[in-house]
Design a protein around this nucleic acid. Structure first.
Lengths: 230, 230
DNA sequence: CCGATGTTTCGCTGCACGTCGAAACGAGCG
DNA sequence: CGCTCGTTTCGACGTGCAGCGAAACATCGG
């Protein structure tokens, strides 16, 4: 992040100043779980008005502590990188409890569902983070790309969709999940993956909702690929 | 430190506020090497008047970041404990690359340095992990304790600090190294080990940084104790 | 094209706090 | 005892900035 040529103590002071405001501290702590949240929600969490929150978010953004992702008329803010997360963790403060899931939502829908035409929900988020972590998925320019080891693993897990190598050329788009507030794979890559998983019977569409129901076999395959639900 | 029952984000904000002032940040950074300095000197370092410095020192004292020791008409300020030092180190180090070098800072500093008053950096981490692995160091309740075989090995490696057995009664505190992001030994045990190593000439303090320079002889002794750098 | 919703910008007010000089306090010293 | 020096307290000034409401902007839905 900010690699200015300022003397050390100025850098430290600037960093401290960003934490010094309870509203900003609250926002950062909420985002410590890796979630990405829209400005309005962060305003609510911090207990300030939308205008004030916007100013705080701008400062955190300029300070390099946050990154923003525009999606429709929402702007999702998240911690800039895991270095920032580590700094915050280093203060040994207990992390904020996970946000409660929206009332009245179907648990199956939270678990896995289609977002447009790709996999979302806990399962989609778990797949994305697990694959990012092991380098099977890497951000590239405007989106993300699957890497060769992932294709090998997919084939090893019984992938049948014909040209598995074709996946390497599809662009994945980071998409923020509504219930989880975290990244999952959309775009052509996400759609292709989801279609093939449906075809192979790893997932099945629920009859009257957008929920996706993983089969026992599917769960095994996912586990084999490093993806597991709690 | 602040053990108040306040919500987390207030604690974080208070901590940040203490760092937010360049004068205070400068004072803390100067004290990061474990030194204790009189108020006047800290005022000079911070570039403010005596009155201003006094106010800052009072705030840092009330905030639990500093401790004071009265001696004659001087008042020597130092960091309150090595927990504070660890926090500061975690925040200050990554943003303190003095050399225009890529994200990593001074190589000597990465290799071995003081964290508060104990050994940190690659060497500190290597020592901790090697000794934990062979059972010379074991976590016990709130910290870690050296085990008898370690003392024997130290003596065998030419340990001269008088009552080597005394080390068994010192509490070691796990301290997270920022550059390595791994555990090393702090607390009274870490300080005692480091002091003795300095005294024995295994390590030497760099003149104008917190780096510790291992001598050839020291490296041999470390290797003898199962500790080696790549 | 129009309203609803999410977000940012602008203008303003009020407070917290960093800064200093002067004065007070306390410890050493002759 | 009176002098000096290191430090803290006091009082006053200036400013940075958090906060809000209103208005501007952007995007989605119809």
């Amino acid at each position: 992040m900010s690699r200015s040529g300022l003397p050390n103590h100025y850098q430290l002071a600037e960093f401290g100043a960003l934490l010094a405001e309870p509203a900003r501290a609250a926002m950062l702590l909420v985002l410590l779980d890796g979630s990405a949240r829209p400005a309005g929600e962060l305003a609510r969490v911090a207990g300030v008005g939308a205008a004030t929150a916007s100013a705080h978010l701008k400062r955190l953004l300029d300070g390099g502590l946050l990154a923003v992702q525009v999606q429709g008329r929402h702007r999702y803010y998240r911690l800039a990188d895991d270095e920032v997360a580590a700094w915050l963790e280093a203060m040994a403060l207990p992390r904020a409890p996970k946000a409660p899931r929206p009332p009245g939502s179907d648990p199956a829908l939270c678990r896995a569902r289609t977002c447009y035409r790709h996999l979302a929900g806990e399962l989609g988020v778990a797949m994305c983070s697990a694959w990012l972590e092991r380098g099977w998925l890497q951000s590239a320019g405007d989106g993300m790309r699957l890497q060769a080891p992932a294709v090998e693993a997919l084939v090893g897990a019984g992938w049948q969709a014909e040209p598995a190598g074709h996946l390497l050329r599809l662009r994945g788009r980071g998409c923020i999940d509504w219930t989880e507030r975290r990244l999952h794979v959309g775009g052509p890559l996400g759609v292709a993956l989801t279609d093939a998983m449906l075809e192979a019977g790893w997932l099945r569409r629920a009859s009257r909702s957008r929920a996706l129901l993983p089969s026992d076999d599917g769960l095994r395959r996912f586990a084999q690929l490093g993806v597991r639900l709690d």
